[in-house]
Design a protein around this nucleic acid. Structure first.
Length: 498
RNA sequence: GGCGCCAUCGUCUAGGGGCCUAGGACGCCGCCCUUUCAAGGCGGAGAUCGCGGGUUCGAAUCCCGCUGGCGCUACCA
């Protein structure tokens, strides 16, 4: 007997840019499907018309694509079980609701929202659990409510007729078994008065129709699971594997939100995180390969990902670790690809005063110099700018540093001597530059013991790169070129004379 | 209020009764390397495994209670 192919789905509501916690669920969905050689589908749960945000669909698919979470079926690419948008599947939900009414598992409720609010308010006041009072569950109450509603031009909702007693057990692939007392469960709404289903009905009908075998979702859904179990049962569906995932929290331990900083993958992309690093990091939020592996390739993830290594406790999103991981990915990336990424980033980040197109040949030579230093792509511009422009902006204080602070004249003389050495160099290589400058440094140190070789290097570094912190000086000078270097030194000298 | 879930270094985690005087990673500190900054190497601080009871020869690991955190309690998902 063959088991059906594993099919998972990521089913977000189009209410804006997907949240990073939500995306982690998508990562797990993707991984599980790929691990078992099954399909990963994208479905849009747009049943709440009041919360629809235009362009969400694009944001969702762009988020998934950026992370390389390619889905096999979805709203924009179709598939054998479409449509993949719930608002286009209304008949299915209606039919399911009608069937449950006919079977006696559901009923129409004509109560007004005003009445419902009043009932709840009163229950809250009496410190009772707020629940629908089941007026329409009884024929008499329903008839009465219906008359009122029709007079007011209102229509009805469909509620599930929850058994008054008994219990139901959720078998969760991650959390294990939990038993719920049906007496605590409300007669919840499945079909709203506008004809749209609620999440509870919609996802179950769709998962069945789309042959979904594994339901992965955030653990805030655990308390709703008993309702779902009731619906599966009423509809005669086989219950899929249900796996609730631990939540991702912000640094303060509360649910991740805007005030915790970046919550969408776009913000991470813009800050200069690589998709592979974010993927790796997210894959490790609640799952681990073993007791030591941190850097995991996509192939390894797919090979090893299973639900039994998912933890139950919530995870706090730790950007520092993500940042470290991003540095690892940058360092391990092939040089050619990294250069392309740097060039694209520079094109986006550098001011328009710097000529376009960005000189790829130059950046290709710079890449090995800075790849060990870059953790975020957003840092690349400051490392590269001086290679691409001669308009340096540094302060006199930075140029002089500590040692030359009281002796600008001495600094100027060092610069002039350096320039003379550099101009006389037979070969413009970083080794030759270093030899010459080191000799000069030693010489200066001999003349004035207070000045170290490093001080000379620092002086030249600021003159050439415009900063006290830069890629390796001699290699940088080699790339900048002799003429531009001597010109920059001359400019620095003039600056000190002024 | 009701129902439910969770609980190991600051953070992500390993751990499934003796291998745990609790391992790894990020971050932090120190040293080495070094032209700056990184990267790298070495070392260190950091968890009486939330607390209290059991069970057992033996518990981070099993059971119960408590506490704390979180979630749900809508014609939102």
């Amino acid at each position: 007997m063959n088991a059906p192919p594993v099919r998972t789905r990521y089913a977000p509501s189009p209410t804006g840019v997907p949240h990073i916690g939500n995306i982690r669920t998508a990562v797990f969905d993707y991984l599980l499907a790929r691990h078992f050689g099954g399909q990963f589908v994208l479905r849009l749960e747009d049943t709440d018309r009041t919360r629809l945000v235009p362009d969400s669909v694009e944001k969702i698919s762009e988020s998934l694509r950026w992370l390389g979470l390619d889905y096999d079926e979805g709203p924009d690419i179709g598939g054998p079980y479409g449509p993949y948008v719930q608002s286009e599947r209304l008949d299915l939900y209606r039919a399911a609701a009608d069937r449950m009414i006919a079977q006696g598992d559901a009923y129409e409720c004509w109560c007004s929202s005003e009445r419902l609010d009043a009932v709840r308010a009163e229950q809250t006041r009496l410190k009772q659990p707020p629940k629908y009072d089941r007026r329409c569950r009884e024929p008499a109450g329903q008839a009465e409510a219906r008359t009122e509603a029709e007079a007011a031009g209102r229509t009805c909702v469909v509620r599930f007729k929850t058994p008054l007693s008994g219990e139901v057990t959720l078998h969760d692939a991650i959390y294990g078994d939990s038993t719920f007392d049906l007496a605590t469960i409300d007669d919840f709404v499945m079909l709203k008065s506008d004809g749209f289903p609620t999440y509870h009905l919609a996802y179950i009908v769709d998962d069945e129709a789309m042959r979904i075998t594994h339901v992965l979702r955030g653990n805030e859904w655990i308390s709703s699971a008993p309702r779902h179990l009731l619906i599966y049962q009423a509809l005669g569906y086989e219950v899929p594997v249900i796996a609730h995932l631990p939540l991702i929290l912000g640094a303060d331990g509360s649910k991740l939100s805007k005030r915790h900083g970046a919550t969408s993958v776009f913000e991470y992309r813009d800050q200069g995180f690589l998709p592979d690093a974010v993927f790796n990091f997210l894959g490790l939020m609640g799952w681990s390969l073993d007791d030591k592996t941190e850097i995991i390739s996509r192939e390894q993830f797919i090979e090893h990902f299973t639900l039994d290594r998912v933890v139950k406790n919530p995870a706090i999103f730790n950007v520092e670790k993500l940042t470290w991981m991003n540095g690892v990915y940058i360092r391990e990336m092939p040089a050619e690809r990294l250069t392309d990424i740097f060039v694209a980033r520079l094109d986006a980040d550098l001011p328009p005063t710097i000529a376009r197109p960005i000189d790829r040949d130059v950046i290709a030579r710079v890449t090995p110099l800075i790849r060990e230093r870059v953790k975020l792509l957003s840092e690349v511009a400051s490392y590269c700018e001086f290679f691409l422009t001669d308009a340096l902006t540094y302060s006199r204080e930075d140029l002089l540093g500590k040692r030359f602070a009281s002796g600008p004249e001495a600094a100027r003389s060092v610069i002039e001597r350096a320039n003379a050495e550099l101009e006389a160099l037979p070969d413009w290589t970083h080794d030759a530059i270093e030899a010459a400058l080191r000799a000069l440094g030693d010489e200066v140190h001999g003349e004035d013991a207070a000045v170290k070789t490093g001080d000379v290097f620092s002086l030249i570094r600021v003159a050439i790169t415009g900063s006290k912190v830069s890629p390796p000086l001699f290699e940088s000078m080699e790339i900048v070129g002799r003429e531009r270097c001597t010109e920059r030194l001359r400019a620095a000298g003039e600056r000190l004379a002024a």
